[in-house]
Amino acid sequence: MSDGPILAVEGLTRVFGSGRHANLAVDRVDLAIRPGEVVALIGESGSGKTTVARMLLGLLPPTEGTVRYRGVDLDTLRRREGMRSYWRNVQAVFQDPFGSLNAFYSVRRCMLNAFKLFPRRPPRAERIARVREALDIVGLDVDDMLTKHPHQLSGGQRQRVMIARALVVQPGVLIADEPTSMIDASSRAAILNILLDLRTRLGLTVMFITHDIGMAYYTSDRLFIMHLGRIVEEGPADDIIRDPQHEYTKRLLADVPTLSREWIL
């Protein structure tokens, strides 16, 4: 079981609209992530990567295809145990640190919210202890943070709170949809290092959804390159960066400005 993928999709397809206005956003996508892996799904705007993320999280039903968690189909899982059990195992961090915290909640309340996923909530003392532990893991000052409201936090701090929120339920997989695209470069590294550290410390599997190839390369073992709804190339990060095979990947890499390589205009 530990050898099999923790999260996998097969033939995942999503069509928006119908008839003449039908738009094939995701087209027969297959991918599999092994436990403890850090991978990145890379695509530009309109590539369908965010739609894949939403289907992976069970927030959007696929038109066709399946999502499997530890080999069990998401539909079966939903019928057998409900989505809450899935979300105990698969959690997410989103792009907009300003929009993903309820502005009317304190950090404590936002984080305690996650215990709704448990059919029998742990006692309050244990819940608080787990919230504190999670805040500590992401490097936030616990006592200072609990009573704060979102508007008192910087973008970087909010995103750490969001990561801590996801960790409270001790999930196996974390889907990070553009977690740093709205955060300054100077705080970006700290956020990414926290996520990478989680893999080492807790064996967390992380999937980045991003347009930022530099970020994906820095963080991930394997990359999936998505273009117009399809995965056009996948493989170990180093192989893809050093020797891209697909035309699209080649163009993408040539168009990203780096520090050392000439950028032919």
């Binding site: 999280l57 927030l59 989103f94 309820n102 919210n113």
Partner: peptide
């Protein structure tokens, strides 16, 4: 909005979603 998606994957039900995640805004 993203905070609604976050609330959903935190297991918040529909009634609470409307009352707590949407109405206050």
């Amino acid at each position: 909005r993203e905070h609604v998606a976050i609330a959903r994957i935190s297991g918040v039900g529909s009634l609470e979603m409307m009352l707590v995640e949407i109405l206050p805004y």
